[in-house]
Design a protein around this nucleic acid. Structure first.
Lengths: 243, 243
DNA sequence: AGTGATACAAGTATAATACAAGTGTGCGAA
DNA sequence: TTCGCACACTTGTATTATACTTGTATCACT
């Protein structure tokens, strides 16, 4: 059963990235020489991989890797919740506190309001905390929100406006004593700190939130679609030096 | 697939401004001689670029750079260097080492090559280090790069392909002993760690790089234009839980 | 059934060539 | 000066040839 061996080996090589995605594999003739097998056997192996969707071929063109196996895993990811559920984990939101407060300076700068609803909570996956989140909502929206509603539904479903996008700032920091306890990590260990301003379709800010993630459990994936800005030489685009 | 290579190279040259907007490109015959390809192949490459709106041609006149060569919004945030220079700071790249190495596993997964050029360097602003960068380049590109070239120009100007985008992963970590010394920060203090895979217009990975920034000096700004995925309730989009 | 060897059909990319048709330039004639 | 035209050079298009690829079939051997 030589063709199964060969199929396995080629599959391994494809998945190891030896043949980059979308690019050509060696021709059947070359593979036949390399594996010291006949073209019939090589074809049988390749056709098995084609059936699995790993590679494909066009007559007169050649064999190529069908889809980037690496990219597939990073692929488009839905919400964190959906991703968690896909893996069978149980997502939970635990509200720490809920009430109106005087807006911190940077929140007031965005929302304008002086009084805002502040909701602090912990997000858990499979009973393990993976984020500490604080959300500030303008008073006019906050008045109609209840603690129960907030714990049951995402904010974006509760707000009476259509959301148009967001700007988020990602930084690193050392875990504060409080965050460390809430997230069950050592004080001072690295965390990802993300501040987000969500705005409606008119680009009016409607939500300010801060998210803190333990570094060992989370990372961001950002797609930079058109590279105009891209200069691998300097720094990832979007980076900003502060102070 | 010679014509795709040529298309990529011409695109790069156009975007690098080698042929000013509205000016003529070399004639098909000249290009054929320069690339040592037939006119058919050159035309196929140019027609691909025409289809993308980058260039156009008139019979009897020649090929020219299209009116607006899709010079997309470089506006938002220029390169870090430009930003630094705008504030009067002096940007500098200091090369730590430059040479061919066996590709680490995750680099090989993306680039396919086993032997890659690795360039490590420190980026400084006003003599203060703000990033430690490692870049891995496939052997076929690395062979034509010199240490001097790399220190003088950004990679994206040196690679003979047109870049099409990138995927970057942002995480937090504690500074290793070496990074701490290079960046002049305490060992174990939080750093932003960014891994980027830059690909060409065919979505073929051409560059893998790792960027480490001291947390106190840097943060990422990400625009989330359309919110579909956005759930302020859960987590910033693009977040991924690891392990 | 699996494998090898061979042959041929059909598709693809490229090269070489030819010719039609449009554009710009320079020169000579009016 | 200005018009007209040949000339060189350009892209647009087509044809032919070649080398290489996959697709498919056949026959033989174990």
């Amino acid at each position: 059963m030589r063709y199964k061996e060969i199929a396995g080996d080629v599959q391994r090589r494809v998945e190891a990235g030896e043949f980059a995605a979308g690019r050509l594999l060696p021709s059947e003739a070359e593979l036949a020489r390399a594996y010291d097998a006949s073209r019939v056997t090589i074809r049988k192996a390749l056709e098995e991989l084609r059936h699995d969707g790993l590679v494909d071929a066009r007559q007169g063109f050649g064999w190529f890797v069908a889809a980037d196996p690496v990219r597939q895993t990073l692929g488009r990811l839905g919400t964190i919740e959906a991703q968690l559920e896909a893996t069978g984990a149980v997502a939970e939101r635990r509200i720490l506190d809920f009430g109106f407060v005087k807006a911190p300076r940077r929140v007031r700068l965005h929302l304008g309001d002086d009084q805002v609803l502040r909701v602090r909570r912990i997000n858990l996956a499979d009973n393990e905390p993976f984020a500490r989140v604080t959300v500030w909502v303008p008073e006019r929206f906050g008045r109609v929100l209840s603690r129960d509603a907030v714990s049951a539904q995402p904010f974006y479903e509760l707000l009476p406006v259509a959301l148009g996008g967001a700007t988020q700032t990602i930084g690193a920091a050392a875990a504060s004593a409080e965050d460390a306890e809430l997230l069950a990590i050592p004080v001072g260990s690295p965390v990802l700190r993300c501040e987000r301003v969500t705005h409606d379709t008119e680009r009016q800010p409607v939500l300010v939130s801060e998210h803190v993630f333990p570094a060992h459990r989370s990372e961001f994936v950002v797609e930079l679609p058109n590279v105009e800005v891209d200069d691998a030489s300097i720094a990832p685009s979007g980076l900003r030096l502060v102070d």
